[in-house]
Every structure is written in C-alpha cells, then in structure tokens.
Design a protein around this nucleic acid. Structure first.
Lengths: 154, 154
DNA sequence: GGAAAGAGGACTATTTTAGTCCTATTTGAA
DNA sequence: TTCAAATAGGACTAAAATAGTCCTCTTTCC
C-alpha cells in the first residue's frame, strides 16, 4: 500500500508520451488514442497538469498540450503533487510544517523524517527516468515474437 | 497524498499505548477507553496486528494483548504492512520483485528505486520513535493551561 | 455454569476515487 | 463570418475502497 492513485499512474503515462513527442503538440484525443486511455480521462488529467504548470496548453483548433519544461526537470514528486496534492504520509503535516499548531503538535519528528525521505526519493526521479522504464504493459513472447497484452480497460 | 489509511494511524496509537504499558496486558476495551477509539475498531485492529505477529493475545477472561516484541523492534514499515499490505507505490511490484512477468516488465527500475527508498525510511523508524512524538492530538493552552481537544469521532 | 475476553467473518455505511458530460471560450480556416 | 476543433471549468454519476458494526463461536477464569 501507500499506492499512488490510478490517475497519477495515467499521468506519468501521458507525460511520458509528451516527452517522447516533444517536437509536436498533442491534443487530449491524440494522447488518448496513443495510450488507450479514455478521452475525458486524459482531458481531465491534462487540465490538472496544466494548473500545476507541468504542461502548457494551446486552445482552439490545432491546439493541444506540450511539456512546460524538459523531462529532466519534471520529477515524480511534481507529478504526484499535481494530481494528488502534497506528499505526506500523515494526515496533518501535508504542508511541510506550516501547520497552525506547529508549536504544540509533535506529529512531526518521526513521521516528518519519513515524509522528508519519501519526498526526496520522489524528487530524485525525473520524467526522463520514468520514460526509460515505461513499458508498463507486460509483454510476453510466443515462439519468439512479442505479444502485446491489453491494458486494463480505462 | 500517499497518505496511510486511518486504520494504520489508529494502529500506531494503539501500539504506542501497549508500548507504554508493557508491564500489563490490555484488552481491546481498555485501549479503546484510553485512546477514545471505538471498541469494535480497536478490536479489529488488534486482530489484524495479531495475525501479523506484532501483538500476542491471551483469550478468555482477563485476556488481552501485549506487544510481541520490544517497541524498538517494531518498525513503521511493520505496522503499515500489517494493516495495509506490502508497501509499494505502484500497482504491481508490491511483492518486492516476485512478479510473474519479471523478465519482461520494466516497471521496475525507477519506481522500484522509489519503493526501496520508502521502505527503507519506514523500516528506520521504530515504534519507540513514534511513541516519543506521539501527541497526535494538538494541545492548545488557555491562560497557561493545556486544553485537550477532541479527537475526530471514531 | 456464567462472565469476560479474543477469533473470525459477514455485513453496512461512508468516503474517496474515477469517469462522464455539459457549457463556455478560444482559435484557425474555409 | 461562420463553423469546426480544441481547451477550461465544473457539475454530476458510478464504482471501488475504506471504515465501522455486529453476530456467532471459542477460550479461560472464577
């Protein structure tokens, strides 16, 4: 457990697609087709990623999305924060020690150390790293030929 | 996000209580009364912790629970694994690289590195550490006197 | 034998998450 | 200038996960 949400998982897939097509702009429909995800779902993810500043959008005909910056400069922490909110294992302390009761509440110490370690691990992995290990769909071989298995229906 | 579940949170509270009363045995009702949690909830948590080997139980009248080992030897990872299953940020790879498709599936590398870092951070914190910073309930002071605030209803 | 515990598991309610859809706005092109 | 193809924003619905309750059975002490 401590699983990231399915939408976040999709988010990395979607961003990885943009990362490997940085030359062109991609509409939500394009990305949905390429990834097998539903159009409304991809659209929703893009809107959220846009608000978080990870992608830039162009409206109107021939519009679509691009990465806002290099894949090297987008971390797993960025993606998770964008789609799920600040990373924190405990209920309070989400906002990195800006809690009102700080002076009185000791939730900190132990759990905070864990939070910090997790955030660091997530910040250390870039979209480039994720992209490299991006064959999320297990592939099997039959008589030496790869079989592409279906993705869980969106 | 990447929040632990509420039950896990309760789990640490409940274990911390046992930790600070290691001399005596505590029934689910005792712990519920001491922590403000519901009896059935505490009971359910204890059953799960028992299966995971973190507490030992004594049945029958005057029965109850004790820590199965020293608070120093129970880690945050133990508690989370017991109550939520194996720690893994991604959907597959929960079972620490014993997946059937291992040879073909590359989910590994990047996410696995993150998983490993998270597991390490969780394994490094013991119940003793959690116990020290255990005032989960923010306390305020009024005219120099502490005010104990209510816990979210169980 | 009865009371006080835990064991196990079924069930229900609640909350969260995922997914869909509608309306408004923007932009390019016929 | 009008239409089509996009995104923006948000409301709504459906599905899944989580939390919480309750019942029956077993164990143990008195």
């Amino acid at each position: 457990m401590l699983r990231m949400s399915r939408l976040t998982d999709y988010g990395t897939v979607v961003l990885a697609h943009l990362a490997s097509h940085q030359d062109s702009i991609a509409s939500a429909a394009d990305v949905a087709a390429a990834t097998g995800l539903g159009v409304p779902t991809v659209s929703k993810i893009f809107k959220t990623l846009g608000k978080a500043g990870l992608v830039t959008s162009t409206r109107g005909s021939h519009g679509g999305y691009r990465l806002a910056r290099s894949p090297r400069d987008i971390s797993a922490a960025d993606v998770i924060s964008a789609l799920e909110g600040p990373v924190s294992i405990t209920d309070c302390s989400a906002s990195d020690r800006h809690c009102d009761f700080e002076a009185h509440c000791h939730v900190g110490s132990a759990w905070q150390r864990i939070n910090i370690a997790i955030r660091r691990a997530l910040a250390d992995i870039s979209l480039l790293d994720l992209q490299r290990s991006n064959s999320r769909i297990p592939t099997f071989t039959f008589a030496g030929m790869p079989i592409i298995t279906a993705k869980k229906a969106p």
